[in-house]
């Protein structure tokens, strides 16, 4: 578990990784990745119980993380590499032929840290519930963490899963929604409104919390609260407000950088805003 004072610097290095990865192959999804850099850093370096050096696909005896919004793979890969699942040098292979770091995460090439393929949206929450139920059956008291996008909540399967988890009292599950209110075609409000998330999840029987996913004080205030709500016969969800493109001023404030890579000049400008850390670039 990393000291919480070091987390912002780790997250800054994760953001540099994200930008350099998508720039190198001129493809990928930097916007949501930058927005979730703080949360994945918080999970992998502080809040999750996990063993990067002895990765097992089944995750028995440790916390499990399922990232349902697989398109933000850059932040996932950086968090995994930076926390020791595979060498950071492998980040340079992202989206290239024969890589284990596929465009969207998969178990297929055997990348340590990934337990299920995601990318086609709406599926990861169900898988996370399955992991959580398996842990209960086996008497494993660890937690299953899941992350979904907010546009992803438009998928019908999500609401099947939400209903199912409450009905089955899946209370070893902590879900976060990346509430950045942007999706490919525009704002979620314009594309397909997903209003009143707090009351929606409460009506479905979930314990619902709100958090600013780009504010470290708020993360450290809400995460312990959320963890304390586990085991209360209800699934727990955090509506996590983030900014798409967080950390790079010209990438923030719109959906424009959802799935677009920066060019050479834009990368240079972005990296100036995120100075290299002691961890160093990959």
């Amino acid at each position: 578990m990393a000291d919480i004072n070091t987390l912002p610097e780790i997250a800054r290095q994760v953001r540099r990784d994200i930008l350099r990865m998508v720039h190198a192959v001129n493809s990928g999804h930097p916007g949501g990745s930058l927005g979730c850099a703080d949360y994945l850093t918080a999970l992998y370096f502080h809040y999750m119980v996990h063993d990067a050096s002895n990765f097992t696909p089944h995750g028995n005896g440790e916390d499990v993380f399922v990232m349902s919004n697989g398109h933000i793979s850059p932040v996932f890969y950086s968090a995994l590499a930076r926390s020791g699942y595979f060498p950071t040098s492998e980040l340079a292979t992202f989206r290239k032929l024969n890589t284990r770091l596929q465009g969207h995460p998969t178990t297929h090439e055997g990348l340590p840290g990934v337990r299920v393929a995601t990318g086609s949206l709406g599926q990861g929450l169900s898988v996370a519930i399955g992991f959580a139920m398996q842990k209960k059956l086996d008497g494993d008291t660890h937690t299953v963490y899941a992350l979904t996008g907010d546009g992803e909540l438009q998928e019908g399967q999500i609401w099947e899963a939400v209903m199912f988890a409450a009905h089955n009292k899946v209370d070893n599950l902590l879900v976060a929604v990346d509430f950045n209110q942007q999706q490919i075609d525009g704002s979620t409000a314009d594309v397909m409104g997903i209003t009143e998330l707090v009351s929606k999840f409460r009506a479905f029987g979930w314990i619902t919390l709100e958090m600013d996913g780009n504010d470290w004080d708020d993360i450290h205030r809400v995460m312990p609260q959320a963890q304390n709500q586990l085991g209360c016969e209800k699934p727990v969800i955090i509506i996590m407000k983030t900014e798409m493109g967080q950390g790079v001023d010209f990438m923030m404030g719109s959906h424009a950088w959802h799935g677009k890579a920066p060019n050479d000049a834009q990368l240079a400008e972005a990296l100036l805003q995120l100075p290299v850390t002691e961890l160093g670039d990959y």
Partner: peptide
């Protein structure tokens, strides 16, 4: 486990349980 009339979720939950062992 009764899945209800939610086949998509059933497949996902089954996948998660299988991946867990």
């Amino acid at each position: 486990f009764q899945a209800g009339i939610m086949e998509a979720n059933m497949m996902g939950v089954a996948a998660g349980m299988a991946l867990g062992g």
